[in-house]
């Protein structure tokens, strides 16, 4: 039980990171971006590449920190990956979504995002192959926190949880305490009015994509660190991300945060009650139940 709780919280933290970026984009750009989950994959692979580069260039960077499988090389690679994935998201916007936003309806945008997802996934498959990879091929062993009730935690997981919470807290501060945050929220509430007040819409859209892409990269690296890297990791996560976003209420950053934990905990705890064969249906169930009682999600508002 305690083990399932902890596992759920960990998966939830990673889902929250991804869902926050997704919900921001959905709110400001007003379309469901199905290619968002692929940004997690991009982030994980970019970090994989630079991790290998730095480890080769600076051998001292390749030593592991304590009992973590994290190295200095991977830490620097992750920072780079956040920037590059953010830039990838902006590039996808400039090349595809921006043109469609000007001329086409929201439904076209949704279909385009499916296309972008396919292209991203297949380019990664072509470059890296379909097999699963890991930052470190050694298996990081879990620490036994308690035997009865059984509680096993990997140092990596604990570290990832702390970092994810820190990143989300930092984002919360930015959104609520800085002019940039006010501007972003103003744009998402009422674009014409915000523009009339001198907020540069284009710049804000770019920043939204940067933040969304950066958070996705972080989520991707964290997921890869605690699970594995594969070209289809985004596809495997997309349903859970949307479930988290919808449960939290589209557009609500705190909602996405909570939504991630709801989905993570539910899929972990559900196994105590239902056979694992039904697990893939769980995100749908969560979406259905939430929308039945709260049609706009836990924290969403009618628009």
């Amino acid at each position: 039980m305690i083990q399932s709780l902890f596992d759920g919280i960990l998966v939830g933290a990673i889902l929250s990171l991804g869902a926050i970026g997704l919900t921001m984009m959905m709110h400001i750009l007003r379309f469901a971006n199905f290619s968002h989950a692929e940004l997690l994959t991009v982030g994980a692979y970019v970090a994989l590449v630079f991790d290998a580069v730095f480890s080769a260039l600076v051998p001292a960077f390749a030593t592991k920190w304590g009992s973590l499988s994290l190295t200095a090389a991977l830490a620097v690679a992750t920072l780079l990956s956040i920037a590059i994935t953010g830039a990838t998201a902006v590039a996808a916007d400039r090349l595809i979504f921006k043109r469609l936003r000007e001329n086409a309806g929201p439904l076209t945008m949704v279909f385009a995002s499916f296309g972008v997802a396919l292209v991203m996934r297949n380019v990664i498959s072509l470059l890296f192959g379909l097999q699963t990879m890991h930052y470190s091929n050694d298996i990081a062993f879990a620490m036994v926190i308690s035997l009865d009730p059984l509680l096993l935690i990997k140092p990596d997981q604990f570290f990832v949880l702390i970092l994810a919470l820190t990143a989300m807290a930092a984002l919360h501060l930015v959104m609520t305490r800085t002019p940039l945050g006010f501007a972003l929220r103003a744009i998402s509430e009422n674009p014409p009015l915000a523009q009339a007040n001198g907020i540069n819409l284009k710049r804000m859209v770019t920043i939204t994509w940067m933040i969304g892409g950066g958070l996705a990269a972080l989520a991707g690296v964290f997921y890869a660190l605690t699970n594995q890297i594969s070209p289809i990791m985004g596809r495997d996560l997309v349903l859970s991300l949307f479930a988290a976003t919808i449960v939290g209420g589209i557009g609500s950053v705190p909602g996405a945060f909570i939504g991630g934990f709801v989905v993570g905990l539910a899929s972990s705890l559900a196994l105590l009650v239902i056979p694992s064969g039904y697990n893939p249906a769980l995100p749908f169930m969560i979406i259905l139940i939430t929308l039945y009682f709260r049609p706009f999600g836990l924290f969403g508002e009618e628009r």
Binding site: Q3, S4, D7, G8, V11, L150, L152, Y223, T226, N227, I232, M233, R235, D236, L237, S240, S267, S268, A270, L271, L272, P275, S276, G277, N279, P280
Partner: peptide
């Protein structure tokens, strides 16, 4: 006797079930 589905983000919950 635990079923493993394709394309799950994490198999941690299944593995924990068995480990117990």
């Amino acid at each position: 006797n635990v079923a493993i589905n394709d394309g799950q983000p994490s198999f941690r919950a299944e593995v924990t079930e068995v480990l117990k």
